[in-house]
Nucleic acid binder design. Sequence first.
DNA 1: ATCATATGTAAGTATTATATTACACATGGA
DNA 2: TCCATGTGTAATATAATACTTACATATGAT
Lengths: 106, 106
Amino acid sequence: MIHLNNGDDLLLVLEALSNPHRLKIVAVLSEGRQYVSELARLLGMSRPLLYLHLQKLEEANLVTSSMEILDSGKAAKFYRLNPFQFNLNEELVHQLASTLTMPKKK
Amino acid sequence: MIHLNNGDDLLLVLEALSNPHRLKIVAVLSEGRQYVSELARLLGMSRPLLYLHLQKLEEANLVTSSMEILDSGKAAKFYRLNPFQFNLNEELVHQLASTLTMPKKK
DNA sequence: ATCATATGTAAGTATTATATTACACATGGA
DNA sequence: TCCATGTGTAATATAATACTTACATATGAT
C-alpha cells in the first residue's frame, strides 16, 4: 500500500489524480491490469497521449508496469494499479504541508 | 461536511488541492479563519496571486468567504475552511469516474 | 513480402495555469 | 491632507500541461 511520507509525496499524488483522463485510467486499471495499446482503445485516446498520462501516474507510484508476452506472441507492456488509500482531510494537509518544498517544475 | 456527488466534483477538489500554494493555504486556514491581506503576509505571496488560488479553492467548495469589520474599523474579507474528509482510494475513483464528463476548460 | 499489431519517442503546437504589475477605490488615524 | 491598510481586478507575461503528428523498430500470421 502506498504511503505518503511528506508534503511533496502528497502533491505528486494529487497532481497525478487531478486530470479526467488519469482518473479514467485508474478506474479501468482498478478492474485489472491492462496493456497500453488495449488501454488506448478502451479509453479512445492516442497511445502517445496515454503514455504521457501513464508516466505521471507512475511517477506518483500509483501504477507499475511490466513487459509480458501476449497469447498472440507479441510483447506487451502491462500496467497495474498499486493499491492506495488516503484519508484526505484538513488534518492530513496540515501535517504534510510543513514538509512541502514548493517545488519548481523544470 | 463536503460531499462528492459525482466525478466532476471529485476532479474539482483534486485540481484545487494539487498545488503547493493551495495546500499551504488550506494548512493555514485549518488553524482558523483569516483575512486575505493577513493571509498574504503569512504565506509571503502577493494578494492578486492569493486571490487566484482562493478562487480555485472556493470553486471546489473547500473554503468560504465573508466580509467582516476588523477592530481597526476596516472591512476585511475572511476565508474559512469547510471541513472535508475524503477516503481517496481506487474504489472511490472507480465509482465516480463513470460520472466524469471529461470537461473542457473555457 | 506485406499486413496487423505491438512498443517507444522526438518534435512541434495548442491550451491552461500560474504569476506579476499596475491600477482604482474605501476608511481610519496622525 | 496624507499615510497605512484594506478590497478588487484588468492586462500582461511566463511556465507548465496537454495533445498531435510523424516517425523507427519488432514479431507473428497470411
